[in-house]
Structures are given as C-alpha cells and as structure tokens.
Simulated assay, not measured.
Amino acid sequence: MKKKHISELLNHARIGHSHFEFVDINVLDDQALFIDPCLIETQRGLWYSNATKLLDNFFNKFYESYRNNDTLKKLELLSCAGEINFTKLGYGKGDNGHGNTAKGLLTTFKNLETLTVNIPSITKAMDLPVTISGFSEDGLSDMITNILHLQLNEFTLEQLAITNVKPNSEDTFNTWDFASSSWKEVTSPCYRYGNNKILLTPKHIVRKKYHFGANQYLMRIILERAKKETAYTNPKGKTRYRTTKKELKLAIPKEDHNWKYKFINEKTESDQSFLIDYHDTIPYLYSDKAMTDAELDKFIY
C-alpha cells in the first residue's frame, strides 16, 4: 500500500506523533481509527470543551426528535450525519452500505422511538453503540465528524499555519451550529490533496476500538450489580459471591443474534439507574486512555 503522510505535505522536518498534535494520516488510504466521544469529553482544553458542548447540543435534539417521534426532525438531523471521508479515518471507501444515508440511518435507529421513551436516561452519543445493534465505531465517528466539521476544519488550518502552509482551496459544507441548534451551511478556506479535502484530527481523541459498548455495559454494570446481590460473608468475615458474571451471562436466553441488546434494553427499561451509573463510570474508565504517541506511530507508520 502506498503511503503519503500529511506531515510530508505540511513540510514537517521530523516524523513521529510526539512532534504533532494531529493524527499523521496517510492521505492515500483510510486508517481504521475512530473519533471517540468519551475521549473528547475527558480531555482538557478549549477545543475539547467546545466540541463536547456541540455534541451534547446535537444529541439533545437528536434524542428529543425520537421521543417526540418527529419524523421530519429526525430526517433533518440525519441529513448531514452520514459517511464522511475527509479525516481518512474509519473504513470509508465511500461505501458503508445503506447506513450512509439519512433514510438508512432512520432504519438503523428505528428502535430508538421506543427506547428513548422507555429509557429517558439515553442522552449521550455513547448510548447509541450500547443500545443499538449494528451501530458501532464507524457510524458514530462519522456522525461526530459531521457535527464537528467546522471545528475540525479550523483545527486543520491552525496546524497548517504552524509550518506556514496556506490553505489551497475553499469549501462549502454543513456543520452543527450551537446557537441555532441546527445544521448550518458555512464556507471556509480548506486544504486539499488533489481533489480530496483533508480534515486533521486531534491525536488525543482517536482509538482503534471504543472502550464502551454493549458487552462492557452488560458485564461491568448490569451483571456486576447482579453478582453483588449474591454477596455473603463467610466464617472468616470475607465477602464472597454465590455466582460469577460469567455464569450469569451464560444463563441469559440467547434466542437470536440480538440477544445482548434485547437483554440490556429490557434491564435498563426496568431500572434507569443502570445507564446513569454507566455514564458516571465512563470518565474513570477513560482516564489517561488516549492512544500514546508510540501506539499511534506503530499503527500509522
């Protein structure tokens, strides 16, 4: 596979992520890294706090549209949330099947119409891969890229300026606007390699795989609580459990391939505190969990 890293195009003298604030993407292909909303939320700095505000604002409107079963609003919100390949992250190739269109995403999220009513604690970006079968890193990373399009473009221009590289084009695109809580069309200078626009991504917000998801939620929150409910004190005064999480998982009915999501959602509908506890736990799970410069070097180069 041919490689041409963005650092070469930006005239950086040294290769290696310790010298950059961005992911040193190969502009000739896609890299299977994904923007992680939990990493954005746990990083410190103005860029990250602004990004978190935008994401919270979008997903408030998104889940509201599902609670109200407002089909027109859902289509409007999803109209600019599909596949986007400017970051050269994810699987890309311009073809993620039906899911890269607003109508395709409507199909993917159809269960949200019921879930958002029955589980009011569904409020965050991270809740989608936890509760929706078939929606994971690639789809959510694309949604986030669209929401933060202007902010990522501005970050890219800042990185260009560090080595005195000027924008070489202009682009008109949709981005999420906090003031109006809607998509907004903006025109801005940008950087292109050939005919392809490039959006650089801060290196602290990408991962190869999310730490959160249905299985982790099941094991760490739901089954952990179920296990603790079997606790007893042995004659030596030590706490023991009458079952393990593995045994509890084996006992769950597995009638079809979506068994995990059905079980999770039924449990969360019956007790909202499960998902609330998960939201509270995530910042601790993600403490210092961004990829290191060495990990990025090994993956990218």
Rank of each mutant, 00 (worst) to 15 (best):
T172K: 15
K208T: 13
F22Y: 03
Q31T: 14
K103G: 05
H5A: 09
L275P: 04
G139D: 14
S287K: 15
Y278D: 15
M219V: 04
K227P: 05
P129Q: 10
L152T: 03
N265T: 04
S169R: 00
G104T: 11
K184F: 14
M219K: 13
E255P: 03
T101A: 04
K203N: 05
K262F: 09
D171P: 02
I300V: 07
E255M: 05
E295L: 01
Y284I: 15
K166I: 05
G45M: 01
G104P: 14
V23Q: 02
P189Q: 13
K2E: 08
G94A: 04
S270N: 13
N153P: 00
F135C: 15
D70N: 12
D29L: 03
C80E: 12
D29Q: 04
S65H: 05
F22Q: 08
L218Y: 08
T114I: 11
D142F: 10
T172E: 02
M126N: 14
D70W: 00
G16W: 07
Y278I: 10
V206E: 08
R225S: 12
F173Y: 15
M143Y: 06
L106T: 14
D171H: 03
I276Q: 07
F212N: 02
K245H: 02
F59C: 13
D142L: 10
P202T: 02
F299S: 15
T145D: 08
G213T: 10
Y63H: 09
K246S: 13
N168M: 09
K236N: 11
K74E: 11
G237D: 11
K203E: 03
T42R: 08
P283W: 00
T201N: 05
G99R: 10
S182P: 09
S141T: 11
I132N: 02
S65A: 13
I122V: 07
N60P: 00
L223R: 09
R192I: 04
N118D: 06
Y210R: 14
K227S: 00
N111R: 11
R207K: 15
F58M: 04
E76S: 14
